[in-house]
Design a binder for these strands. Structure first.
Lengths: 205, 205
DNA sequence: CACCCAATCGGACCGTGGTCCGGTTAGTAG
DNA sequence: CTACTAACCGGACCACGGTCCGATTGGGTG
């Protein structure tokens, strides 16, 4: 069922020269440090390159764009998160009814946003969000749960629509701009899922 | 009920010198023309300024940012749209049950996106979307309809969540990136509203 | 060890969105 | 008509993300 799940993670490409690997590590370390010290939005790519002791060309060759670098910094956490909802314990992982898993999934996304909204904001800039492999994994996961719960819906469209509520931009607006509590957002998500997705105990057609 | 609706539209600020007004018009005309001729994303602010016969400083003083200029170009259409759902005919305007109005509202948003996705993409860049007065009007409208249909929900959070499905970025991704038909998106929206918002004929608590 | 070439490096370079400030002008008061 | 000032004008200027290409070097081969 949920096989074929060897994730398109962002990895060191096939074979990498020793100096290239060393530079990737240096860059990631420098980025993590500067982002942590001064806030993601206050660090330029030039500064990261300099702090890493590396040319700007190298930085962009390795990571392609600012958004992509931010995503790379987050990739460890993302991998753990994916592990959690693919092979972890219920209700996030397999075993619980799909409605509950969906609720847990959204709550976990909100927790991630709460911790890393700045980085996610950078990572999603432009249309980068939808291009990123992680988004496809999330979408597939939600689609499967939706299909499991209710075969009648257009799970493809519904999955993207539901996920759009977890954009970093919206989160920052609601949380910082409007000052809403995290718990309130979670309750909103629970309520939305309860209304949208039939629970296991509901009518079986 | 839905009084206090004198919209915070983007207007010529209070009093404007004659040359300032002339320049605003020139800029808008030039922007509309260039956007139409070459595509929004292929026109720089420098080019607009030059085509309008105006300095760059003037352009930015008038419109503040690229996003804001794009929004101004769309403001006429937006005003007509607002007219439609505030004072127009049912089912978009007042008179129809809230569930139907909500469906019509979303379909109209999707039509606007279909026609102007490029401009909207530019207008929403950054967090500009939530800052724009038009967004607040849309949110208020959805909140009122939600409250009318079902007092028990957290209409504030739900309104923002539902509206997030109409971001230009998501639309472009679904429509161009994934090639989904417009009608399919509309059907997805209808289905979502049907599930989320109780119809008039449903249980009145 | 010497050779070689593909991969990598780094910093000069570009176009962009956005800011700044000295000079200019519209509109008013006398 | 003149004088005055607040608002406006324009283009030089800045920092940033991203590209390019000549110089360099890793590391396999004979």
């Amino acid at each position: 069922m949920s096989a074929a799940f060897d994730l398109p993670q962002i990895e060191p490409e096939s074979f990498e020269r020793a100096d290239a690997a060393r530079n990737r590590e240096r860059i990631l370390r420098a980025a993590r440090r500067l982002f942590g010290e001064r806030g993601v939005s206050c660090v330029s790519m030039d500064e990261i390159a300099e702090a890493a002791g590396v040319g700007k060309g190298t930085l962009f060759r390795r990571f392609g764009s600012r958004a992509s670098l931010a995503a790379a910094v987050l990739s460890e956490r993302e991998r753990a998160f994916q592990e959690g909802f693919i092979r972890g314990e219920p209700p996030l992982g397999p075993g619980a009814p799909p409605q509950e898993r969906l609720i847990a999934f959204g709550e976990a996304l909100l927790d991630t946003l709460e911790l890393h909204s700045e980085l996610l904001l950078a990572a999603e800039s432009g249309a980068a969000r939808f291009a990123h492999p992680a988004y496809r994994v999330h979408r597939l996961h939600v689609m499967l749960l939706l299909g499991e719960a209710d075969a009648r819906c257009d799970s493809e469209v519904l999955a993207d629509t539901l996920l759009s509520g977890f954009s970093a931009e919206l989160f920052v607006y609601l949380r910082r701009g409007r000052g809403l509590e995290l718990e309130r957002l979670k309750e909103g998500w629970r309520e939305l899922v309860r209304r949208t997705v039939p629970s296991a105990s509901a009518e079986p057609v």
